[in-house]
Nucleic acid binder design. Structure first.
Lengths: 252, 252
DNA sequence: CAGTGGTCTAGACCACGGG
DNA sequence: CCGTGGTCTAGACCACTGG
C-alpha cells in the first residue's frame, strides 16, 4: 500500500495516537527520526502527513500534539450562533472583539439587508476560539438601529445572537448561506495563525428574524479547516434532528 | 511578508501564471531551482505551495500545469445532477459507470427512502470527470422499481437525472444534503487518483420527486477539493439566481 | 531514452517558546 | 538556555511519462 517510508511511519503513528485525548504531546520530528532510524526529512514528512489528516497539530517551539476537529453544523434549523453551535458540539467557545465601529452602510450590505445605503451600521470584527485555538475570524454587519449600544453590550455578553435576542428583540435565523473552501490569503492566515495557503472555509450568511422574516444581520467568516469540520445541512422532508443522510459514517 | 525564500518564489510565480489558461505547462522543480538559484528542495517547496493554493497541478513524469477549480453549486433550487451542474459552471463533464448491481435494499437506505428493507435496489457506483480529471466518485441507490432497466439505460445516457426524468417519470430535486471536508482515505484516494490524506468533500444527498415529494434516490459522493470548489447554498428569502450573499468576492 | 515529480540522506542555521 | 518546528543545501536513487 503505502510504499513510501514516511507513509508507513505515519500509519504506525496514526494507529498509536488514535485513542489519545486531544492535546496529548506526541513524538516530534527528532524523536521520530531516532525511533524509526530515518533522516529528519523523512520523519518530518511523516508528521506532516498526520497534520494533513487533521490528526496532530504542531507549534514551533512547543511540539506536536494530538488534535481533534470540532463539528460546526450549519443548518437552517439552528441559530447562527458560533458559541451555541460549538457548545452543542462539545467544545469551549470564546470570542474576542477585534473592532466594532459605526460606519455608513455600504451599498452591497444595504442591498442584502433591505436597508438604506449610508444609514448607520455596526461593522463588527471578531475572532473566535475553540479550546483556546483561533478558529474563526470575520465580520458582522448589524444595523445600528437594531442595537444602538452594541460595543457596550458586547462587553457584557459575548454572544451576538444573545444580544440580538435580548436587546434587539429579534430571533436570528439563517436565511441564506454560502460556504466554500479556499486557500488562506495573507490577512486570513495572520488572523487565524496558520500558514499561507492553509485550507479555510469561507461562510457567508444572511440572517433574518425568525418571526417577522425581516433581514437582521450579515456575516462573513473565515474558519480554519484543521480545527473545525464544517458540516452543511439543508433539508425539508425530515425532522428536527441533525442525523446524517448517508448510509455509513464519514470516516472514509 | 513572506520571509521564506520558497514563499517569495511562489508569489512571483503565482503572479506570472495568473492570466494563463488552465492546462498551460509551467516551470517544474528543476527549472525553478535553476532560475531562482536555489536548491531543488526549495524550488519544490515553492511549487508545492502553488499546488496547495490550487493554482497548479502536478503529474509525475509529465510536469506542472496551470489549474482551475470548477464551481459545483449545491442548492435546493437546482437539480442534483453532476453533468448539469458542471456544464453550467463551464466545464466538460463525463461519467463512467464502475458497477451497477441489483441488491436487496439495506436497512439504512430503506429508512431514508421510505422503502421496504430488502426490496430490490440498484447500487450504482460511478466516477465522474471534469475536463478529463477524475473529480468525483461515489454511490447512488435507486429503487429498482423506479427504473427496472437501469444498466441498459446508462449505456445510452450518462445522466442519471435525465434517465429518472425520462424513464422513471420523476423530477429529482435535493431534499436533504450533508456536506463536509475530509482527508482522503485509501479507497477514495485510489479512485480519485490523489494522494492519501488529500482534501476531499463528502456530499451525501437525499433526493425527492419535485412534484410528489416522495424520496427517489440516495447519493454519497467523494469529490476532489483541488479540482472542484464545492459551494453550498441554502436560502429562502431571495430569488432564483445563484448570486453570493457576501460583500466581496471570495478571493481572500 | 530524457525529463518529470516522489522520496530520501546528512548535514546546517534560524525563530520561536518555555524554564 | 534547550528543544521545538521552519527553512535550506547538495547531493542521491527511483517510478513514471512521453517520444
Amino acid at each position: 500500500m503505502a510504499s513510501a517510508k514516511y507513509r508507513e511511519i505515519a500509519a504506525v503513528m496514526a494507529a498509536e495516537i488514535a485513542g489519545l485525548p486531544p492535546g496529548t504531546k506526541v513524538d516530534g520530528e527528532l524523536a521520530v527520526a531516532a525511533r524509526f532510524g530515518v533522516s529528519r526529512a523523512a520523519a518530518r514528512a511523516a508528521v506532516q502527513e498526520l497534520e494533513r489528516q487533521f490528526l496532530v497539530r504542531r507549534v514551533r517551539g512547543l511540539g506536536t500534539f494530538t488534535s481533534r476537529r470540532v463539528d460546526y453544523l450549519i443548518s437552517s434549523r439552528r441559530p447562527p450562533s458560533w458559541s451555541q453551535t460549538l457548545r452543542d458540539a462539545g467544545a469551549t467557545p470564546r470570542t474576542v472583539v477585534r473592532s466594532c465601529v459605526d460606519v455608513p452602510m455600504p451599498a452591497a450590505v444595504a442591498h442584502m439587508l433591505h436597508a438604506v445605503e449610508g444609514s448607520a451600521v455596526w461593522r463588527l470584527q471578531r475572532c473566535s476560539f475553540t479550546d483556546d485555538l483561533p478558529a474563526s475570524w470575520g465580520t458582522e454587519w448589524v444595523p445600528a438601529a437594531t442595537v444602538p449600544e452594541l460595543p457596550a453590550a458586547l462587553r457584557r455578553v459575548e454572544s451576538l445572537d444573545r444580544i440580538l435576542r435580548d436587546i434587539g428583540a429579534v430571533v436570528p435565523a439563517r436565511s441564506r448561506v454560502r460556504a466554500s473552501m479556499e486557500a488562506a490569503g495573507e490577512e486570513v492566515a495572520d488572523e487565524l495563525a496558520i500558514g499561507l495557503g492553509a485550507p479555510v472555509w469561507l461562510v457567508e450568511s444572511l440572517n433574518k428574524d425568525a418571526t417577522s422574516g425581516a433581514p437582521v444581520y450579515l456575516t462573513e467568516r473565515w474558519i480554519r479547516a484543521d480545527a473545525i469540520r464544517v458540516v452543511f445541512e439543508a433539508g425539508d422532508i425530515f425532522g428536527q434532528d441533525g442525523s446524517a443522510v448517508g448510509t455509513r459514517p464519514a470516516s472514509n
